[in-house]
Design a protein around this nucleic acid. Structure first.
Lengths: 342, 342
DNA sequence: TACGTTTAGGCAATCGTTTGCGTAAACGTG
DNA sequence: CACGTTTACGCAAACGATTGCCTAAACGTA
């Protein structure tokens, strides 16, 4: 009733027992008689007793909270990863605290510190784009707090991470286009300071090479991979002396931009130009034609990162060598690349 | 260095001062000399002292954590709201704990309890679709914890909430369709235990009435408003003796489902049937035709909910009568409803 | 010199749980 | 009956920070 919260002390007074007995009864400790336990349970329910996790955490040194930081929660990929993390850790009794770095190093540092102060038992992060110095993460490790990175990770630093195989994903996509009969395949590439885009480009090149197709510099359009960039890229390609017969874009959004332009030019997809993107954004299954793309298993990525964290937590005492887990990327074949065979 | 975390005690020993002096020095208390403060600050930095928020929270009775529960984080609308909440509360030194109810009443109850036990200072929630009993929320209030609902709320319950004007949004959308010359407007409606869907339905009806158009029960298709439901809804409408000339869907996804079906039936949008959705999902600006929809100002909604919470927290001692804040919905007119006038 | 005031800091209780250790009472056994 | 063993519980010290109250020393002033 009322605004009051019942504590162990209140229960103890009420039953004329010691606080420790109440505590043990509630946690079903063996040294408390069944009769007493039942009395305690009954009263606890009656007084709506809720344990103060803060106090328990302080005493036990376990907060049951894990910190998650993403550039922004407001993007499908990150939200899905977070969802994956949450569902897995929730089952183990953890709550997650969310922070957003907004791709800014300064607030990343501030947030990491806040998480550590909140006594999180672990930190799961996708690094901000602008981050160049990683000492704030090293400090986390020094404190013995398990740290797991996902998607974006640091080269050189020996930290556990979960990523997808961008290279294989790209390779498969391009191989598929070739299998469909495409021979002049263009590529929308991202900024090459990010490994994910470098790997996709490499997958593209190697797939061409593996099928004895020439690599043509002209067919690679490097850009920010936004919708607008995709439009510009398509316009660019259309002005080439000879058209490509496929485009593999390192992002779905750029692929969609291209799709818009190609359609206005009455170019048939996939018959004249086949199209494949990357990320499997929800929209790609709603376009017309539906877009072939590469799925990143974002929710699975979150689950995997969470499991890796749990594993690290268990082996916390023993020296645990950081692990990298590479998830398979999955090619999703849809209309935009599927040429009918008659 | 090392794995060790420095505590006030460690600093105190090092400087041969008492713990309380250290604590006061760090919080810049007036009764500590500048000389001592400087010594303490220097050592604190040197030993990389980080205060244990758990302990401070326990002692001060303020956790600086607020709980947020959404049906799923994995949807643009909710992620945006969360982003809004996070940015506002972060500035005030709060961290947010995220839970997902998965639209399931049981896990909603479990999560609310977990949040309360984590000693959150407030709870911000969008209610699960299946929730019919609200005693778990009443228990939160009884404990004196500020509670703010957003988007989905309950009629009858006197709880602070931030919603958009679903009624006006729907009214405007339907009015717009009528202005475009539509006379037989169908509606995809949601489950009517949620006020948002009831309000949209009412906005639809009233807009018809305001323009002397008859309300036809047959044209209202109640469903779960998913993509599939939208498809089914369109198929349903296509079998009516006389076709509608517009569909106003209470959700974007259902509108998109309908769009797919209409296209396969060679029905021109908007000329044969105009289409309008609700929510302004990112996808809607990428479809073909681009979908007319109603924007919910999701990030602003989150910010507003956060501010309302902060306000309630400040006036916690004084009896605070719950407030409802209604944000304006904004009609976004796009191709799917814009009939060319020649 | 004597006494009030300020300065600078210490003592110890407190937040609510958990847990190692101690111990009465009840019980079992020869 | 005597003595070891359970059984069932209490005591008190943690966890780390905060804070009301107290007190030496230094200072000021008449």
């Amino acid at each position: 009733m009322a605004t009051s919260k019942a504590s162990l002390i209140d229960l103890a007074k009420e039953l004329s027992l010691s606080v420790s007995t109440i505590s043990r009864a509630l946690s079903n400790h063996s040294s408390i008689s069944d009769a007493t336990k039942k009395k305690v349970w009954k009263l606890a329910k009656q007084m709506n007793y809720q344990p103060n996790q803060l106090a328990a955490a302080l005493r036990k040194g376990r907060s049951n909270i894990i910190g998650v930081m993403v550039p922004t929660i407001n993007r499908n990929f990150f939200a899905s990863v977070v969802r994956g993390i949450e569902t897995v850790t929730n089952k183990e009794g953890f709550n997650i605290i969310i922070c957003q770095s907004n791709d800014d190093e300064a607030s990343e540092i501030k947030n990491v510190e806040a998480l550590v102060n909140a006594q999180v038992e672990g930190v799961i992060v996708s690094i901000a784009r602008s981050t160049l110095d990683f000492s704030h993460f090293e400090r986390v490790l020094q404190r013995g707090i398990p740290l797991v990175l996902f998607d974006r990770m640091i080269q050189g630093l020996d930290i556990s991470a979960v990523v997808i195989d961008d290279y294989q994903g790209a390779f498969q996509a391009v191989k598929h286009l070739i299998d469909q009969g495409c021979r002049r395949i263009a590529h929308f590439a991202g900024q090459d300071n990010l490994t994910i885009y470098r790997d996709r480009l490499k997958g593209y090149r190697d797939a061409l090479e593996a099928h004895q197709l020439p690599f043509d510099e002209q067919l690679v359009y490097q850009c920010k991979l936004t919708l607008e960039a995709g439009r510009a890229g398509a316009e660019h390609l259309l002005q080439l002396p000879s058209l490509p017969d496929a485009i593999f874009s390192a992002s779905d959004h750029a692929a969609l931009g291209a799709m818009q332009v190609l359609k206005t030019h009455q170019i048939r997809i996939p018959d004249d130009i086949a199209l494949a993107g990357f990320s499997n954004e929800p929209i790609t299954s709603l376009t017309e034609p539906m877009l072939t793309t590469v799925d990143q298993h974002s929710e699975v990525m979150g689950q995997t990162a969470a499991k890796l964290f749990l594993e690290m937590l268990q082996n916390k005492s023993t020296p645990f060598s950081p692990r990298k887990i590479v998830l398979q990327a999955e090619l999703i074949i849809r209309e935009s690349s599927l040429r009918k065979r008659e």
